[in-house]
Nucleic acid binder design. Structure first.
Lengths: 249, 249
DNA sequence: CGCGGTAAAACTGTCGACAGTCGGCAATCG
DNA sequence: CGATTGCCGACTGTCGACAGTTTTACCGCG
């Protein structure tokens, strides 16, 4: 083992932090854990030992626990009392739900966006598609996904509802759980490109119906892609809790 | 001050826990803080001192911190590094965003629900409306709101997407931030009743368009109600952070 | 009387430690 | 030989304490 301190960890896809101030330990540990989970250094369903993590990262257990709670709220971890934290494992149904919610959010967003489609937004989206195309041509699967998500983030952003954007961000955290499934099944670069250009065209047309059709198609493709990829791989999770359908308040 | 220990707090809408085991301190503190914020024992924008809380509740600071992080993820608190936790204060724009997202979620939910409208769901919703009507006749404003939310929770539940329900729950936490504003402006009991009966009728009709119209009207009324209530009261929040529109990844 | 600077107080971030609990292993009994 | 029970190790939940930072109060000076 003997990992270095968190300061020295390599994060190729880390969030750009232009500010001078370094984040506190909690966020650093959270970022580290997020990356480790996404890159499958921790497998779905695996238990995370607090002492092990704190030893490896060279910090005490308090920041580790707080970071774990943060990731739990993001749906990346699940805590079982007195048992510890486990890496969340999405089964097929949960994955369907995630994409259904994504459809819900993006439909709404694109309708809001087409109402207030400024040149600024148009320019930014167009530019991001270009970045995405460039990424799609590369072999870096993770970057491809991130640029794709960033495009959708931009859409949500220019839709003008910050809370909607937050809901989307919460969702993407879970989406990244199965990111490796997507990166492995190498989607054709031009498919990605045309799929996004269709969205731009629909927005340019100004027709809400065209936008809805475009986003439905777009997300449908992504859904089929991931659901196909998951197949029999990542179901697991829990069969022991048989009292889940009582709808607690 | 001198609140009692967290064990003694009254939670009329507490989750049913048939098991012997009591929850851990973190959840207890989180529930306590949630109730305290909702009942405005802590005012919006107010800072929460960790030591003060831990003294008052008779626990150490670790559970308080973890509970505070939990509530931060729910949007009830905001943490500023090295400054502490503050009660979230929703301004008018944020409130609009919340209701817009609620519209987004419930539109989607009711469309999913009308596709799979089982007798079970119909019965449960009808019963909940009756409970709501009873609550609406009472003077307990908090209970009125909670039963109202519970009805919508049921709708989301029977829509069959657990993730959608979670997104709604996350949102209602923020909705409760301005709950007192709603309870003060006493809505007419029969208005509430008929408004919900319309939803049931739309579902019975099986027409997606009717459902959409009903939910749009329903949430529109609620939105106007709250937005009118907030008026000049709860804006505040922060004017110091001028770098919020850079769209961080 | 107002203002700037300094020092003290209070608070947050982090740490190490202790106690209760859970899971696994082995010894024992049927 | 299989099931049960007691024990042991490991781990989580919680606590008190220390260090660095922010806020506040106070004091001198203009």
């Amino acid at each position: 083992m003997l990992y270095p301190r968190v300061n020295a960890m390599a994060l190729p896809t880390a969030a750009p932090r232009p500010f001078i101030q370094q984040q506190n330990l909690v966020e650093q540990v959270a970022d580290y854990l997020t990356q480790a989970i996404i890159q499958q250094h921790f497998l779905p369903g695996e238990r995370l030992s607090e002492v092990q993590l704190s030893r490896d990262l060279g910090v005490s257990r308090a920041p580790v626990r707080e970071a774990a709670r943060l990731l739990e709220s993001r749906g990346l971890l699940i805590s079982k009392p007195r048992r510890g934290f486990f890496v969340r494992a999405l089964n097929a149904v949960e994955l369907e739900d995630v994409f259904d919610l994504r459809l819900c959010l993006e439909r709404h967003a694109i309708h809001r966006l087409v109402e207030r489609y400024t040149p600024d937004a148009q320019r930014a989206l167009k530019q991001q598609v270009e970045v995405l195309c460039e990424a799609a041509a590369s072999n870096d699967g993770t970057r491809r996904i991130e640029e794709d998500l960033q495009f959708h983030r931009l859409m949500l952003h220019y839709a003008g509802n910050e809370r909607l954007l937050r809901a989307f961000d919460d969702l993407t955290h879970e989406l990244r759980l199965c990111i490796t499934l997507i990166t492995k099944t190498h989607e054709a670069p031009d498919t990605i490109a045309t799929s996004h250009f269709k969205l731009l065209d629909a927005l340019d047309s100004g027709s809400p119906d065209a936008c809805r059709e475009a986003i439905d198609y777009h997300i449908g493709v992504a859904r089929d892609f991931v659901v196909k990829g998951v197949g029999e791989t990542g179901d697991s999770s829990d069969e022991d809790s048989a009292d889940e359908d009582v709808l607690p308040r």
